[in-house]
Amino acid sequence: MVETSPFPADTEHVITTSKVNFFYGATQALFDITMDIPGRRVTAFIGPSGCGKSTFLRIFNRMNDTIAGTRLEGDVRINGEDIYRNGSNVVRLRRKVGMVFQKSNPFPKSIFDNVAYGPRIHGTHDKQQLAEIVEKSLIRSALWDEVKDRLESNALGLSGGQQQRLCIARALAVGPEILLMDEPASALDPKSTIRIEDLIGELRNEYTIVIVTHNMQQAARISDYTAFFYEGHLVEFNATKKIFTKPREKQTEDYITGRFG
């Protein structure tokens, strides 16, 4: 059978990886992953716990660097640039590649200071300018109307769903091109989850979004492309519609039909 590319001919691949192997100490977590992730689309990573999808996600902004004893082999490029070459600027990379974590983690500071944190460390100190960035980011993350009257109050006073949207606003404020989301809704109630999903839908045309999720319905609802990981291997990567209707691999089918995982 001839492999046909799932991507339209004019697709621009923002993240490309080639033969990526990843190790935690002596334990290999990822095996030979070669994958091209399209720009300005939503790509979902699915798979059972421990399959390596979060590890793979954290490769794109080099967050795995913060874990002692990890090692990466292979080639990871963002916009054609090898992000793991010697002398690569991690700070610049992380400005371009924002991240939202599974557990919402707003700083114990005011809502304003949370969103302004990124711009400030990158050198924006003009009050007017900061206020504009904060407002714009909060509007983009669909939180502005709820918090505009209490920007100076502590962010930890927000509800779980609001906190997560604040974390998205905080990531957007830096002006990234890529947004990595590591199970951003897994700790939220259904209503807040829907709001996050709607938000992802609104951001999809401006940002390259890669989202790790445990929830297959969520992947089906919000993503254009879906990658299925199993035990450190990329089993199948295709248009979401294909993955959920006509998976090529038996393992994928078993997983999405709930036979394991």
């Binding site: 913060t66 974590f101 983690n105 707003p106 830096v174």
Partner: peptide, 19 residues
């Protein structure tokens, strides 16, 4: 989580510790 969030926003290690 605070350290991760700060680093992921492009702060250096020392900026993260300081702030």
């Amino acid at each position: 989580g605070y350290r991760d969030a700060s680093l992921a926003l492009g702060a250096t290690k020392w900026e993260t510790i300081r702030t």
